[in-house]
Design a protein around this nucleic acid. Structure first.
Lengths: 149, 149
DNA sequence: TCTAATGTCTATAGCGACTATAGAGTCAAG
DNA sequence: CTTGACTCTATAGTCGCTATAGACATTAGA
């Protein structure tokens, strides 16, 4: 199987496959007479594993550790559990932060949406609202409030 | 106010301030006799605005647009509403994806946590579980299942 | 069999948003 | 007057790719 076929089967770009090889995630495959890389089913599985991990935003060096673990299994695997825990925590923090941001943006947008009927811009009115609690919102209001439309 | 003071007040690194200047987000401030950058309150506000936006993962060129809008206000600001909408949608997708991932990782970890009492590793047992529906989980099980501890 | 199109090769540079390093100059306190 | 902290510029490195250039290999059609 040449690199193009592997790329098609996995949905991974050719250049990315070569990149993974360069980074040591994929082993250097044998070559054809014309110096083309030749892959087998094991390579396919390995690449699919990498892609699964990447889809979940694992970093390449973490994936490398997992692959290394597969290649040279050791007695202790508690570090995998630790890895999972730290990733779970990271994700919780990320979700929380994103939810906050989203709410703030929605608040701001709802103000903007209301004011397009020719009257004074709703954002303009919002400028005087001292109840705003979000710094970004206030900053944006400053910007948007400095004109009428 | 010298760059270090500005950095301290905003929590932004000195190098990052210079980087923002280079990228055109901060205007070039006047210099002291010794060629040190000298900032004022307006610069402080401007930097704080940038940092608020960055905290919410806006890209520098989007922030630049907003700053440009502040510097040269125009008649039409509907694009700001559009910008907000697209960011809100992006965030929804991100949160959804993260929640899925987190659940998968939790499932996997709970298997690992159970098996440390000297018996066969719970992950080992999980290998035969045909009900697993997550590809990453299965892949990890393959790896971790290839040994006992 | 020739030719043109496509696939593959290597090496290098670019992206975004910084971060780190090197080597020099400036300033304030002891 | 010297030491140390601060600042300056310029350049290179980070991560995970992506794009480009120029050469070679293979394949399909005329």
């Amino acid at each position: 199987m040449k690199i193009g076929e592997l790329a098609e089967k996995t949905g991974c770009k050719v250049v990315t496959i070569r990149y993974y090889e360069k980074k040591g995630l994929l082993t250097r495959p044998p070559r054809s007479e014309g110096n083309y890389r030749l892959y087998d089913e094991a390579d396919l599985e390995r690449l699919e594993f990498i892609l699964h991990c990447r889809k979940h935003e694992m970093q390449l060096d973490e994936i490398k550790k997992l692959l290394n673990f597969r290649d040279h299994p050791q007695r202790d695997c508690t570090w995998v559990s630790d890895l999972l825990s730290s990733q779970i925590d990271d994700i919780s923090a990320k979700i929380h932060s994103l939810q906050q941001l989203q709410q703030q943006l929605k608040n701001l947008r709802s103000r903007c949406d209301g004011g397009h009927d020719g009257a004074t811009c709703a954002i303009m009115q919002g400028l005087d609202d001292k109840n705003s609690c979000c710094a970004v919102e206030n900053d944006l209001l400053k910007i948007l409030g400095s004109h009428k439309h």
